[in-house]
């Protein structure tokens, strides 16, 4: 690890330590922040008692379903839009403005339509994730080097082979970033929805703990949520790094 990496770890450790001291000495009241050591202890308790298992299962189910919908739907929508330049030009303003609109404002509406439960969460999360995948697919297909397509023509590949053997492999790094983003968005969508209004799930557990002044537990749950996302993100990132290194893009 380089010098910057070591300093980074030192900075983070120092920040955590400072927070610990501030909490222990009462500079930060326990009604606001509990000490990091207590947060970790709380994570341990919650995970070992397994009390969160049900909520976690619900949240992950919604996230996984939404991510799959976003990835598959976004990929095929991207393929179609890429194949139809006129449609793409027409949709351009929509693509550009999509993430500017706070989709969460529509969550209440989705509850009215689908009722409380997994339904509105999955819809909200898929809606958030799908555009990332569409844009990544378009981006990937746009950036296939022309010389590779010319090579495909010299080798007389038909359209299907060209797509499967040249375009998609060449676009794969972009698709992978799309997958990563789709997951992130889906997770945010589900947890935000649960958090605002729902009867179960990780987000709901956090807001329930907040409402009931269970700070220790709340911080433990927040750490679990962040840890979960970081775990998935890091896994995808490691895969991406490996791929990019092999391709000499890093």
């Amino acid at each position: 690890m380089g010098k910057a990496g070591l300093i980074r770890i030192a900075v983070i450790l120092a920040a955590v330590l400072a927070l610990e001291i501030a909490c222990r000495t009462g500079a930060v009241p326990p009604s606001a922040v509990v000490p990091p050591s207590a947060m970790l202890a709380s994570v341990y308790e919650i995970l070992t008692t397994g009390e969160i298992a049900h909520d976690l299962r619900l949240t992950l189910t919604a996230v996984v379903i939404a991510t799959i919908i976003a990835i598959v739907g976004g990929f095929f929508a991207g393929l179609i839009i890429h194949g139809l330049p006129r449609l793409r030009r027409t949709l351009a303003p929509l693509l550009a403005a999509y993430y500017a609109i706070p989709h969460l404002a529509f969550y209440p509406l989705l509850i009215v339509v689908f009722g409380l439960g997994l339904g509105p969460l999955i819809v909200l999360a898929s809606l958030l994730g799908i555009m990332a995948m569409i844009i990544a697919t378009l981006d990937g297909l746009d950036h296939v080097p022309r010389v590779l397509l010319r090579t495909a023509a010299v080798l007389r590949l038909n359209r299907w082979s060209e797509m499967m053997l040249v375009r998609l492999p060449a676009a794969f790094p972009h698709l992978l970033s799309g997958i990563k983003l789709a997951f992130s968005y889906a997770f945010i969508g589900v947890v935000a929805g649960e958090f605002i209004l729902s009867t179960a799930g990780l987000g709901h557990a956090i807001s329930f703990a907040y409402d009931n002044f269970q700070n220790r537990r709340m911080y433990g749950l927040i750490l679990i949520a962040i840890g979960l996302v970081t775990l998935v993100n890091t896994t995808l990132l490691v895969g991406e790094r490996r791929l990019l290194t092999r391709r000499g893009m890093r």
Binding site: P145, T151, V154, R156, V166, P169, R247
Partner: peptide
């Protein structure tokens, strides 16, 4: 309008498939 059998092309740019 298509590349016939028997013609091979080597391009100026690197056309190896990185994957």
């Amino acid at each position: 309008g298509t590349v016939p059998d028997g013609i091979g092309v080597v391009f100026q740019e690197d056309a190896s498939f990185p994957w």
